[in-house]
Structures are given as C-alpha cells and as structure tokens.
Design a protein around this nucleic acid. Structure first.
Lengths: 147, 147
DNA sequence: GTGGAAAATAGGAATCGTTCTCATTCTCGG
DNA sequence: CCGAGAATGAGAACGATTCCTATTTTCCAC
C-alpha cells in the first residue's frame, strides 16, 4: 500500500513540509502496528528513533492530518494513522492494562450512532462536533486468568 | 443536597474508609463546579487544599465509586461526581481550550445509542463494556471571536 | 476520659511523559 | 557548488502525578 505513503507525502508537501525518512519510518511503524501505538513504543521500537524526533514528527504528522492522537485512560498519548488512511473504527480500551484494539461495528449500527449523535450535537448548539465513541472493558489477556 | 454526602459517606465506610473533612471539601467542590474539574483547579481553589491530599483523596473517592476520572485531550486529569450521584450525561470537550461541559441528550436518543453500543460490544466479545461518548468541538468562548 | 493503633494528612522529593532549546546536519532551489 | 531554511538529536526544562515519611487525627477498647 503505497497509497498511504503517497497520501501522507502529499499532505506534507501541501503544508510545505517534507516527507523525510524518519517520518516515513514513523508512518510505516504505525501502519504495521495496526492500532494506536504509545509514543514510548515508537521510541523504544527496534529502530530506536530518538525521542525528540518521534514527538516532533508525530506532532507534524498530526497537524497535516496524517495521524491522530488518541487519548486513553492511562496518561499516555497514543497515535494511529488518520481514519481516512485506514477505515472508520472505534476503540476497545482495556481498563486493566490500557491496551487499545480497533473494532468496527456493523454499518447499520454505525449510521444510527452517527445520526443520533449529530442530532445531539445540533441540540447542544455545538459547532464542528466530532464524536469519540470508545468501549471500555477488559481485554482477552487480562481476562484470561480469571475466565 | 445531603444525599450526595450521605451516599459518599456510606460508600466510604462500606470500604472501611472515613469521610474526613478534606474529603467532604473535595466532594463539595466538585458538586459546586458541576462539571469535570481539573485536579489543579482543586489544588489552587480558594481553599487551597494541599496537592498530595487532593490526589490521594480523589484516588480514594474514585475507588469507592464516588467520583469518576475523566480523560480529556489535554494531558490533565479531571474529576466529576459519579454519574449515579448526579445524572447520566456526556461531555462536550472544547478542542481549542480543553474546557469540558456536561450535556444530556434526549432520552430516546440516549436509549438508541445505548442499545446500539451494547450490540457492538457483544459483537466484539468484549466483557464488562462501558462506553464513553464525547463530543469534540468548539466552545462558545473560543468561537466568540470568530463567529 | 485515656491510650494506643490505624488512618489520614501535608510537605517535599522523585518519577515520568512530554516539550523546548540549540548546535549540527541535511536538503533543495538557484 | 552555495546558501537558506528545514530537520535532526541530545539533553535540559517542565509539569502533572506519584511516592515517601514524619506528624497529626480519629476511633475504639478499656
């Protein structure tokens, strides 16, 4: 899928920025992981990118809409590829270990939620409202011991 | 509304903990604020509770289900009274200044979302799933200048 | 009441993720 | 090939949160 890299490259250049090797590495790493990756994971990853570069570049990539910052219960930032580079999805957040998985829900349900929340946002006179829908529960690993 | 304090007191004592004046102050402060308060606000509040006490007690209150920790885009923790001490609601999070407001949506819509997400959680074989539905947009203050 | 054990408090040190600074290196247009 | 601006990376700075510990408070048994 060079699509992803091509798209990211275009968005960067549209913003007057370059698609440097480090940035490509980051995007590639995020694509491989396939779910929101903690910043520290990227720093400590096998390639060992320097901390300052990881933070700086994730920030740049976020500004051009290539990646999205995801907030979790633990106090750490996670990043994933922007939804329009992957697919629309939600997150399963493990309340025990903080791990995050992607989930998609049936299109019909998705539409219902979408419409419902759009109404709610309108009712609240809220502008430019995105919504964040996450499920918080217990992941397989953390449940394994008990169940 | 002594209900709130009475309920908190009971939950604490059920857990073998005390409802000390400091803890009562915290609960009272959260009740007055009426929306998720940043920890720092409580520390710097007029009463100036010591930092270590604020953190320690919020943690205790969270464990007994009296307050809930709310995660926002900014990296700071916010706390609000537990939903069963107030009313079911969602949050409007301002993407510009990080402020959080409570919103309720019509009961009919609420039920739809509820049911929809319950199905989604079941489909994902996810256990004990709560969901978090927040709207992210721009608050009146931050919009005021532009609009 | 009084004494003592357990809980709570508060001040500050320690931690840790994140941001900032700046000197060096790279890159691209001319 | 040169120079300006962009990017890099090492480490300092920062700030929210957690941890440590000596002191104070609270509650219960006597």
């Amino acid at each position: 899928m060079d699509d992803v890299h091509a798209t990211v490259a275009r968005r960067l250049s549209d913003a007057g920025q370059r698609y440097t090797p480090k940035r490509r590495d980051l995007v590639e790493a995020l694509r491989r992981v396939g779910r929101p990756a903690a910043t520290q994971d990227l720093v400590r990853g096998r390639r060992g990118l320097p901390q300052s570069s990881v933070y700086r570049n994730l920030s740049v990539l976020e500004q051009v809409g290539a990646v999205r910052r995801v907030i979790t219960e633990e106090g750490v930032a996670r990043y994933e590829l922007s939804e329009d580079l992957t697919t629309h999805h939600h997150h399963l957040v493990c309340r025990s270990c903080g791990a995050v998985e992607d989930v998609t829900i049936p299109a019909r349900l998705e539409r219902t939620v979408e419409r419902t929340l759009a109404e709610a946002a309108a009712a609240a006179h809220f502008e430019g409202a995105l919504h964040r829908v996450d499920l918080i529960g217990t992941c397989r690993d953390c449940r394994g011991v008990t169940a």
